[in-house]
Amino acid sequence: MIKTVVMERKPLSLSERTYLPQIASGLKTTFSNLFKKKVTLQYPEQRPSIPRGYRGVPTLVKDPNGREKCVSCQLCEFVCPPKAIRITPGHIPEDDEERSHVEKAPEEFEIDMLRCIYCGYCEEVCPEEAIFLQENYSLSGYSREELVNDKEKLYEMGGTLPDKHFKWDKKKTDEEQGNAH
């Protein structure tokens, strides 16, 4: 059992009770700070370095073949706490050589950045690794409509990310060789 020791505060001396020496030393500190190097980041011209794993604006990415990865499973829409995501699912037509085996793709994909709270759940839940919160953090617009990112804008911001899975590529190879019945 540890015994609690009550530390008595040392009584203040007369000079301490007037506070004046303390005030003087405080003044000295602030004065010396006048001439120290400033730490301000001149924001629009200088940009901060973004740490890894930063959660910026959510974007849609394409796979290395430049194909749409999102299959509109709507899990992000489901998991989104502020209901910022709105997806209209759509078919991929059968005559689309590249992607017909994927079957489904979003017809429209909207993220309302006025609602988004940058929680990153959408990125976490995405089974196709199609949605990423990237480094862009400054977002502004003149109207509410402008801040609703549609599919086109989301892909424009997202770009292409390296992909280790090539899921649909494998699927296609399987189809072409091997186990087709």
Binding site: N33, L34, F35, T40
Partner: peptide, 10 residues
Amino acid sequence: KVCAWMQGRV
């Protein structure tokens, strides 16, 4: 200005 300088700002 003075406040900024004292706080390391510009």
